[in-house]
Amino acid sequence: MNLFPPDNDIRRLSSMLSTKSESSFVMLDCLFYKIANRIPVPTDISDCHKYLSFTESLLMSESSTFITDVCKYNYAKISQIVAQLLPPPKSVSKTYNIPARYHRHLQNGTKTDAVSGWLLYASFYYVTGQFDVTLRLTDYVLSRCSPDMMLKDVDYDCEVHQNCYRKNVHSTMTLNDRMKISTISHVRYIKHSSLIPLELKLEVEDAAINIPPNVISHCLRCLCFHRLGDIFNRQQALRDLYLIVIDNYSITRSHISISLTILGVCYEISGDKDRAYQCYGEALQRNNMLSSLSAEKRISKLDGN
């Protein structure tokens, strides 16, 4: 696995690292966010542990603050994967204690940005039946998903978001602090993730999926209220999810299909199969290959095939 960006990007990084201007750190950060999206991540737990061990040794020898922060980011990113490769978690006690191996990786995973790691934590508590904790975590996440936050998966080239980023952070902060303060990210559920809600297992049957943070937040809220038998709040959460997906100002074109599919799932569990069918059909029309595949399967199930 290649841990490093292409040579031309390395040269750009080196040039920016040697520049001391106050504005250069924003350009450097955005270039890193762009590069980070290209770096493949392992999906085998043995490879993940090798990666983590290598990164730990690199952190002990690296003197550059920026490179150290990059290593910490990648460590956190892999930790999110490892947490999903562990066996499906069992129900936890009422004191909310969770096994150390889950906690360690989930906690490390919160360091990639302001929300994605916390949403994996929320998913963990959902699949272990601690719905009140999931609801509190999604409340927190939604409070962080403000318009001035940079969606670092796609907004790194957007001048408006770069300016917002510049206003929210400063060069004396570490890269990791800047990411946690001023960036959000899609939540990546790997293929057969042990942390994805049972209701969404079909979506990761064939491949990994990336879900916008506000979409999965409202989805988790809808699922929690459904499990709790709170019909009023379930419908409110479903309405909030509908508005997010239909307005889609914060959803990129490549994520509309999976967002519509998730909206359809929430309609289906609430008993509105007609609207669910419409959502799955529109998801197919948007033709994002992987999410359309699950939408097609869901239409087939509704048709009784």
Results as ranks from 00 to 15, higher is better:
residue 27 M to A: 14
residue 283 A to P: 00
residue 217 S to P: 04
residue 249 Y to Q: 15
residue 183 T to A: 02
residue 72 K to E: 14
residue 114 A to S: 13
residue 73 Y to A: 04
residue 28 L to A: 07
residue 117 G to C: 09
residue 224 C to M: 03
residue 50 K to Q: 13
residue 41 V to A: 09
residue 136 R to W: 01
residue 256 I to L: 14
residue 94 K to M: 08
residue 288 N to S: 09
residue 22 E to N: 14
residue 27 M to K: 09
residue 248 N to A: 11
residue 58 L to N: 05
residue 105 H to L: 05
residue 140 Y to F: 14
residue 274 D to A: 15
residue 215 V to G: 01
residue 233 N to D: 12
residue 279 C to S: 00
residue 200 L to A: 03
residue 10 I to M: 14
residue 212 P to T: 05
residue 217 S to I: 09
residue 81 I to Y: 01
residue 32 F to R: 00
residue 54 F to D: 14
residue 128 T to R: 03
residue 272 D to T: 05
residue 301 K to S: 13
residue 236 Q to Y: 09
residue 143 S to N: 10
residue 194 S to G: 10
residue 114 A to G: 08
residue 134 T to M: 14
residue 152 K to G: 11
residue 163 N to K: 14
residue 148 D to T: 14
residue 29 D to H: 06
residue 67 I to R: 05
residue 143 S to T: 13
residue 165 Y to T: 08
residue 256 I to D: 03
residue 53 S to E: 11
residue 118 W to S: 15
residue 275 R to G: 10
residue 240 D to R: 00
residue 184 I to F: 00
residue 63 S to Q: 11
residue 39 I to M: 06
residue 76 A to S: 15
residue 12 R to V: 12
residue 131 F to H: 13
residue 175 L to T: 01
residue 281 G to H: 02
residue 107 Q to R: 13
residue 229 G to H: 01
residue 211 I to Y: 03
residue 121 Y to L: 12
residue 9 D to S: 15
residue 131 F to L: 14
residue 195 L to Y: 03
residue 271 G to D: 10
residue 192 H to I: 01
residue 215 V to H: 04
